[in-house]
Simulated assay, not measured.
Amino acid sequence: MVSSSTFTVLFSLLFPLEIKQVTKIIKGARAGSLANLTFQYVGFDEPSKSTILSWLSNPTKEPPPRQAFVIARAYEKSYEFVVSLSHGSIISQHIYNGTGFPLLNLEEQSAANDLAFKYPPFIKSIKKRGLDIKDVVPAVFTVGCEVVPIPKAEGTEHRGSKMRPPFAAETKPITVVQPHGPSFKINGHTIRRHSLASHKECNFKGSVDLK
């Protein structure tokens, strides 16, 4: 029987020290050939469900190895790595030749934001909508990640003081009350309700600014 604490440690997202360990391993192995390497994503490489179930059926065996999946950029190419945290080495690596580009790191997001606010057509579209450009917060995505065209100004008014009928159907109030507290308990990433337990994590593949 595997305790919930053991399961949580084995299959949690990477800890800060592990992220540093992963980047150090890759930089050490690729220092000469990929000198300008930037890290777009560093995250836990979760084992397959079948692998986990196989181990749970016989927990006396060695648990699945703790590994990291990495997306990095160098010389206008995207690289994918799988790194073993247990052995401190790169298990696999290859150049990604599929469609789209990986997420931007923080420096790239900042540069893209600055470029947008200096682009005359963008500035003109903001003014046409009667908005103050200082109130605009951009969201930056790479091509292939999420492409959403900016709608035309007409018919996109969202300010209540400017809207005219017909309005959307009114949502009636709703109240949910549990006077004795919730029926579940949260311990770290584990949620328990009666005899059921689930391990929840938000694996947001956002950019990581690592140097």
Rank of each mutant, 00 (worst) to 15 (best):
Glu146Cys: 13
Ile150Pro: 05
Phe101Lys: 14
His189Tyr: 12
Lys24Ser: 01
Pro47Cys: 04
Ile123Ser: 03
Lys200Gln: 12
Thr60Ala: 12
Leu13Asn: 13
Phe122Thr: 03
Lys200Met: 12
Ala111Met: 09
Phe101Trp: 11
Gln21Asn: 03
Ile25Asp: 00
Ser125Cys: 07
Val136Met: 01
Val140Gln: 06
Ser48Cys: 06
Ile90Thr: 00
Ile191Trp: 05
Ile90Cys: 00
Ser183Trp: 01
Gln93Ala: 13
Leu115Glu: 14
Tyr119Gly: 00
Ser198Val: 15
Ser78Phe: 04
Ser48Lys: 07
Val140Asp: 03
Arg164Met: 12
Val140Tyr: 10
Thr171Trp: 08
Ser54Thr: 13
Met1Leu: 10
Thr8Lys: 12
Glu201Ser: 10
Phe69Arg: 15
Ala35Asn: 08
Asp209Leu: 14
Phe81Ala: 00
Arg192Ala: 04
Val176Ala: 08
Val22Ala: 06
Leu103Arg: 15
Ile150Arg: 15
Ile19Lys: 02
Glu46Ser: 09
Gln67Ala: 09
Leu131Arg: 15
Met163Leu: 06
Ile123Asp: 00
Thr23Gln: 04
Gly144Trp: 04
Thr156Val: 13
Pro173Leu: 00
Lys20Trp: 07
Glu62Ala: 13
Thr142Ile: 06
Val42Pro: 11
Ile91Asp: 12
His199Arg: 08
Ala153Thr: 12
Val137Asn: 11
Ser195Arg: 08
Asp135Pro: 03
Pro173Tyr: 00
Phe117Ser: 01
Pro149Asp: 01
Asp135His: 10
Val177Arg: 15
Gln21Pro: 02
Phe81Pro: 00
Ala169Gln: 13
Arg129Lys: 11
Met1Glu: 10
Pro65His: 10
Gly43His: 05
Glu157Arg: 04
Pro121Phe: 01
Pro64Leu: 08
Phe11Ser: 02
Leu85Met: 02
Phe167Trp: 06
Ala168Gly: 13
Arg193Leu: 10
Asn36Gln: 07
Phe69Leu: 14
His194Asn: 08
Gly206Gln: 08
Ser161Phe: 12
Asn105His: 08
Gly28Val: 02
Lys49His: 10
Ala116Pro: 09
Thr38Leu: 09
Glu154Ile: 12
Val9Trp: 12
Lys61Met: 11
Ala153Asp: 05
Gly100His: 06
Pro65Asp: 11
Arg66Cys: 01
Ile186Gln: 07
His87Glu: 15
Ile90Leu: 03
Ile90Met: 05
Val83Gly: 05
Pro179Ser: 06
Ile174Tyr: 11
Thr6Tyr: 09
Glu62Arg: 14
Asn113Gln: 13
Gln67Asn: 14
Ile95Thr: 15
Lys205Val: 09
Pro59Ser: 02
Leu210Met: 08
Asn187Gln: 12
Leu210Glu: 05
Ser183Arg: 04
Ser48Phe: 12
Gly28Lys: 02
Gln67Pro: 05
Ile150Val: 12
Glu146Arg: 13
Ser92Arg: 13
Pro63Thr: 01
Asn36Pro: 02
Lys49Met: 14
Asn58Gly: 08
Ile133Phe: 06
Ser161Gly: 04
Phe122Arg: 03
Leu10Ile: 02
Phe15Ile: 10
